[in-house]
């Protein structure tokens, strides 16, 4: 990429700006979210499998389907969303443990999935995904021929 230095901007400033962009990129990518007072990955997930599918579950209390954006590409799954909390200014806060805001979490699935057939439900704040494994990763019985 070719960048033109504008007048009065030194290479040092350019470097600083470059660093800032890089740091912003890291902050954007890192799935960190303050939850329960301490920084942790949000949302926490459980993953298990059956013969045909990977199953993933995440606890997202208070979230609506419209607040969530789930994308799957190959073996990469991204959960994106915003948790909105009821907040008003005219209150005295006695305890504040629930956290809100935007989050992004990308994970590498242990198998390629058929992205067209992913099923998702969100019931009582629990998200559940059924991700059918791509045909190539489903177990195949291999017949051994004699002779």
């Amino acid at each position: 990429m070719v960048r033109l230095y504008s007048r009065g901007v030194s290479p040092l400033h350019q470097l600083r700006d470059e660093m800032n962009r890089w740091l912003e990129g890291i902050q954007h990518e890192t799935p960190r979210f303050t939850f329960g007072g301490s920084p942790s990955v949000f949302p926490a997930i459980n993953v298990w499998e059956d013969d045909k599918s990977l199953l993933l579950e995440a606890e997202l209390p208070g979230m609506k389907v419209d607040d969530l954006n789930i994308t799957a590409v190959g073996d990469q799954l991204t959960l994106k969303g915003e948790r909105k909390l009821d907040e008003s200014d005219d209150v005295t806060v006695h305890q504040c443990e629930r956290a809100g805001g935007s989050f992004t979490r990308t994970l590498t699935l242990p198998a390629e999935v058929n992205v067209d057939q992913v099923e998702a439900t969100l019931i009582d704040g629990v998200l559940r995904l059924r991700l059918p494994k791509a045909a190539t990763t489903s177990p195949h019985k291999i017949d051994v021929k004699t002779g």
Partner: peptide
């Protein structure tokens, strides 16, 4: 459960995250 407790002029409001509970 994680909770928020706020006080308004005439009431307290408690919110608790209980995902999966009916």
């Amino acid at each position: 459960p994680q909770v928020d407790i706020v006080e308004l002029t005439d009431e307290f409001v408690v919110r608790a995250d209980v995902p999966g509970a009916k």
